[in-house]
């Protein structure tokens, strides 16, 4: 059997001589069984190509996110901020020389500044508390997964990879499970967790969204999604997270007590 595969492979790897190639091609025309083997080989190689492309795409998506985060970390700005600043710089109108202000005109500015400072300190403190709570809740959510005793399937392998912090492997295995069953709640949750652990928020939210859309008696999707949004903290994230948490509490979904704790800190 291997001889046959090896022979087929030799043809496509262009290892056969001219006579060998012609013989191979004749067999394809005359021997249906052989033609089927060739078709299966081509199908398998094409499937491998698709899988490989998916794997690379995922690696590069992470790479792209990583390089963007690094740029943002260096500049202290988001990419959008940087683009905006660049636009502003290009469109900037030459400014008039700054005039000196009279002392009296300083007073309202000083008062406004003091108020702003007070507000900033107040919010920074409460924000710090909220961030601490989010980090702690995240830690609880991303705890190692308990194995199912006796089971040896791909879900178990995926859980093991997840617990061993082998993210790429875990993602691949969970993805395999989802390809067989796109509504596999555990695979969706752990895909989300793995991406969250990597701070790949967009992908994490993608899977948690899918999980949230499932009708389950107990669904961790909305609570986890709210946590991811709070950690990402982009424009509008906090409001969306708040609504999700309110919903989790109202419907007593999974994580509702912790959701309430977060809502208290967000007041």
């Amino acid at each position: 059997m291997n001889d046959s595969l090896e022979y087929i492979e030799a043809y496509f790897e262009r290892e056969l001589d001219e006579a060998g190639r012609q013989q191979f091609e004749k067999r394809c025309e005359q021997d249906v069984e052989f033609a089927r083997d060739v078709a299966l080989y081509i199908t398998t190689r094409e499937a491998m190509k698709l899988s490989l492309a998916e794997q690379k795409r995922e690696e590069w998506r992470l790479l792209g996110n990583e390089s963007r985060s690094n740029l943002e970390a260096v500049s202290g700005n988001t990419a959008d901020d940087a683009a905006l600043q660049e636009e502003e710089r290009l469109e900037a109108v030459p400014q008039a020389p700054v005039r000196k202000l009279a002392i009296r005109r300083w007073i309202p500015y000083a008062v406004a500044a003091s108020v702003l400072l007070f507000v900033a300190i107040y919010f920074t403190d409460s924000d710090r508390e909220l961030r601490k709570q989010i980090a702690s809740n995240k830690q609880e959510e991303l705890m190692p997964i308990s194995p199912t005793m006796g089971a040896q399937d791909s879900l178990e392998q995926a859980k093991e990879a997840y617990n061993n912090q082998e993210d790429e492997k875990a993602l691949r295995l969970f993805r395999g499970i989802l390809q067989a069953d796109s509504t596999h709640d555990q695979a969706l949750l752990y895909m989300g967790h793995t991406f969250w652990r990597q701070k790949n928020y967009d992908s994490a939210l993608h899977y948690l969204d899918k999980l949230s859309a499932l009708e389950l008696s107990s669904n961790k999707g909305p609570y986890n999604k709210a946590l991811v949004l709070l950690e990402r903290n982009q424009l509008g994230d906090r409001d969306t997270a708040k609504k999700l948490l309110q919903n989790v509490v109202a419907e007593k979904q999974e994580g509702y007590r912790r959701a309430q704790g977060l809502l208290d800190l967000m007041k």
Binding site: T43, M48, S51
Partner: peptide, 25 residues
């Protein structure tokens, strides 16, 4: 062409996806 015509009929996207799924597991 001739050999391709015969083999081509046996290869389709559904089969590729089924094999890909098998590969994932």
């Amino acid at each position: 062409d001739k050999a391709k015509g015969i083999v081509e009929k046996m290869v389709d996207q559904q089969k590729i996806l089924a094999v890909k799924q098998q590969l994932e597991t």
